[in-house]
Design a protein around this nucleic acid. Structure first.
Lengths: 352, 352
DNA sequence: GTCTGGCACTCAAGGTTACCGAGTGCCAGC
DNA sequence: GCTGGCACTCGGTAACCTTGAGTGCCAGAC
């Protein structure tokens, strides 16, 4: 598609813009000396690159800035994985050497680590929840004329509880009847079972039973969404100049659901890097995402990712995400973080 | 200290500035009609208030802005706790009705709740950790000539693990000896025990044992720092205009340790509200903090707080923090979130 | 045909000036 | 002690100019 010279110019523009955040001039690229041509020649090539959509000129007397397409070319032409810097490898090693058993905390701290490594915001999605447990017992407890509590005990020992409120007064008998049908509907099944409990003949008791079943299902749906850990969100404030951009990006970072589906989306499309508008989120049009799944006991379990400006250091981000996802998976797999001498241990890499 | 008219003017200025973020003019205060005087009179009073340090004039042809001292007067003169707005009370009620047993998640979601209630960033400090458990066994496992692993099993079943690296090669015998003295030093005691294991006669083994003991202590120190949950950090980006302010504030919000000591500090000084420079953190000079401890089973356990700009809606923040801390303590105390009819239940308040 | 030096052109950024008006301080009179 | 009046201050905005980085294009060299 692009001849070697155009490619070199494009790479130079991207690299420079990543470093400086400024439009890149033809003079800069020429003076770089990599290809010995004059600025004028570079200008001509740049004009072509712009026509083909790789570059963009903020205004007619400015240098060029890469478009998403330009970044995409750059990322695709990255020559395999760059190794992590040695201090960064050291950080990773130290971190995983001292991980403790607590899952949530490990994940949360992993997100901080990844953020420190890359200087962007990092996202870690927890291993997907196991299938919902079966319901072992279900009770309705009346607390006041208008209020009662559904309490479900699950096979795995968890207790789900939810209050139900009603406009009309309820009688003890109604609550009992509702509890009976709701229990026979759910006990032995999982909380996410849909449908209606058997009718009792009393419409009020029926609606109560239904509310209990629905309430528990809602609750479990909320519980089951994989928790997300975001680290270094503040670094996004440093990555952008415009206040409004900072605001929208930070806003997104707090919407866990959006984040999860963003990462899932990117992975599902078989990508490792999503640049600017490539992922669907308009609010993150100025951002890129680098993701990698991690495997626990050989199974794809969760995702780690980095969110940064489109002009991010892709090579470093890719390296960090790769190493962290691999190590995290290993730590979560068998609890034994250090296996010196194993072929892909990054200690070797950083030493070599 | 301040006669009633000055106080009224000061209050008017604070209230207006909280709403508009703009300097407040004498004309505005006069036109408010609360005290029927002319702008000129208000001006004279304002000049006095400025001399006494309650107000500040950004420049000579601008209105007045409250100083920290002005806000302090305002907060101190707030007439008792304002009740929560009814939709907010509803939010709180719904939230605590459906809390589940998971501590970390409850705390994290509580911080989101508090942030939604106030529209500022919210901080929830977890109940302080129980005393460290005793060590039941301690082992040193050599993994390579330069590397070994300390593994300690605690009485509560937790396993602490930490890798130790050394420049010089170590022999099996040295590791054994070090393990022996380290174990006899720590087993039966708690990991935070300071001091030195008994000397073995081999300086290298001694230093290894010491490293093991120190490493575990460090680890436990890290583990024991109460986790903090920050919600709605992004809202701080909306609260300030200046990018640099946003950056510093967000930076602080990610330093959990700083946050914890900030809240602790404020509480220790017997305050509920710390305005601007009143807390020691220069980086947060443009922020105020509203805090409240919460009690679990009658014991002060943790803290909830709100961080906002000095021009925050103190009444709402105070109300939200008070209600949330009370409810949170109750939920964590006995797992029974709803006690209809109890005297201070906010359902009554919002209904009345 | 391709590259290059030269040159006119463009346009954002920064500085200067002028003006406006919100808001003050002060004073004289009620 | 309060108030209306008035001169004064000074930030903000707009208009204008200048500067210079960078481009596009062209004619000539290779």
């Amino acid at each position: 598609m692009l001849d070697e010279r155009k490619a070199a110019i494009l790479r130079a523009v991207v690299e420079c813009h990543i470093r400086t955040a400024q439009p890149v001039s033809s003079a800069y690229v020429a003076q770089l000396g990599e290809l010995s041509v004059s600025p004028a020649t570079v200008r001509n090539e740049m004009a072509v690159l712009e026509q083909e959509g790789y570059l963009f000129q903020p205004h007619s007397s400015a240098g060029r800035v890469p478009t998403d397409k330009g970044y995409r070319f750059f990322v695709d032409s990255l020559s395999g994985p760059t190794p992590l810097g040695s201090d960064q490898a050291e950080l990773v090693r130290m971190f995983f050497d001292r991980t403790h058993g607590e899952l949530e905390r490990t994940l949360s701290e992993t997100s901080s680590l990844l953020s420190r490594l890359t200087d962007y915001a990092a996202v870690v999605v927890a291993p997907s929840a196991p299938d919902p447990a079966r319901v072992r017992s279900l009770q309705l407890v009346q607390l006041s004329p208008h209020l009662c509590l559904v309490v479900a005990v699950l096979a795995n020992g968890a207790v789900e509880r939810r209050s139900l409120e009603s406009m009309a007064d309820m009688t003890e008998a109604q609550v009992e009847r509702a509890a009976a049908v709701a229990a026979s509907f759910l006990v032995g099944s999982t909380v996410d079972r849909t449908g209606r409990p058997a009718p009792t003949g009393d419409p009020y008791a029926d609606s109560l039973a239904q509310a209990a079943v629905d309430g528990l299902r809602e609750l479990s749906a909320e519980d089951n969404q994989a928790p997300v850990f975001v680290g270094g969100a503040a670094r996004m404030a440093a990555a952008f100049e415009a206040v409004t951009t900072i605001r929208t990006v930070l806003g997104i970072l707090e919407q866990q659901f959006v984040l999860v589906s963003l990462l899932k989306d990117v992975l599902d499309r078989g990508l490792t890097v999503a640049i600017g508008a490539e992922h669907g989120l308009v609010q993150l049009a100025e951002c890129s995402v680098v993701v990698a799944p991690y495997e626990v006991d050989g199974q794809r379990a969760g995702t780690v990712g980095v969110l940064g400006p489109t002009r991010m250091h892709y090579d470093q981000a890719l390296a960090a995400v790769a190493v962290v996802s691999k190590k995290l998976g290993r730590v979560l797999s068998d609890g034994e973080p250090v296996r010196p001498g194993s072929r892909d241990d990054d200690r070797q890499r950083s030493a070599g």
